[in-house]
């Protein structure tokens, strides 16, 4: 088999943090802020029901929604506009010690019960769509982090960049 340039060269562990409630933007900010300071998180992915800017269907189509949970949150120097109510956080981490650290953060920050499970949550291999959309030399770390139909810039954020690396 021919190896493409986008194959990852290391096998990382993947975990999912699943709170029993949908999180408020303030809780999301606190959680992500703490997680951003943990060494050993390679990639993170937040997931939850969408918060549209305007009513998508019915007689009120086009009316502004102004959902109070659609807020700009600040993680370190990066401002992110939340367009979902966060329900799960999927993480790719280097080893089990990082998982324990994440569990202690969840214990401290989350106001509700949660599940933390290991599994396969973020794609490790390119799909045909990835290949067609991003080409053979796409960055493997960005794989599976954004909707193929949306612009990557609006959905993928790079935190804690290595000092010698330019803008990604």
């Amino acid at each position: 088999m021919v190896e493409t340039a986008s194959e990852p060269d290391e096998e990382y562990l993947q975990i999912e943090l699943f709170p029993t409630r949908l999180l408020k933007p303030e809780t999301t900010q606190n959680l992500l802020e703490e997680l951003s300071e943990v060494d050993g998180i390679i990639r993170a992915f937040i997931h939850g029901p969408r918060l549209p800017l305007s009513v998508p269907s019915g007689p009120a189509t086009g009316q502004d929604v102004e959902h109070p949970h659609r807020k700009v949150i600040q993680i370190g120097d990066t401002a992110i506009e939340l367009s979902i109510s966060v329900g799960r956080i999927r993480l790719e981490i280097t080893d089990k010690d990082v998982e324990k650290e994440i569990e202690s953060i969840a214990e401290r920050v989350l106001p509700c019960k949660y599940e933390l499970r290991e599994g396969y949550f973020i794609p490790k291999e390119s799909t045909v769509t990835d290949y067609a959309k991003r080409g053979p030399n796409a960055d493997p770390k960005r794989r599976g982090l954004s909707d193929p139909k949306a612009s990557e810039e609006s959905q993928v954020f790079v935190l804690n960049k290595p000092e010698n690396e330019d803008e990604e």
């Binding site: 709170p19 409630r21 408020k24 969408r50 918060l51 509700c112």
Partner: peptide, 26 residues
């Protein structure tokens, strides 16, 4: 909810209220 009924099978929000993506009530 006359339109966009999404929410009955979702987890509740932190404040214990059922999610409504159109924010009709809070």
């Amino acid at each position: 909810r006359g339109a966009t009924v999404h929410g009955h099978s979702l987890r509740l929000q932190e404040d214990g209220v059922m999610f409504d993506m159109l924010d009709r009530r809070r």
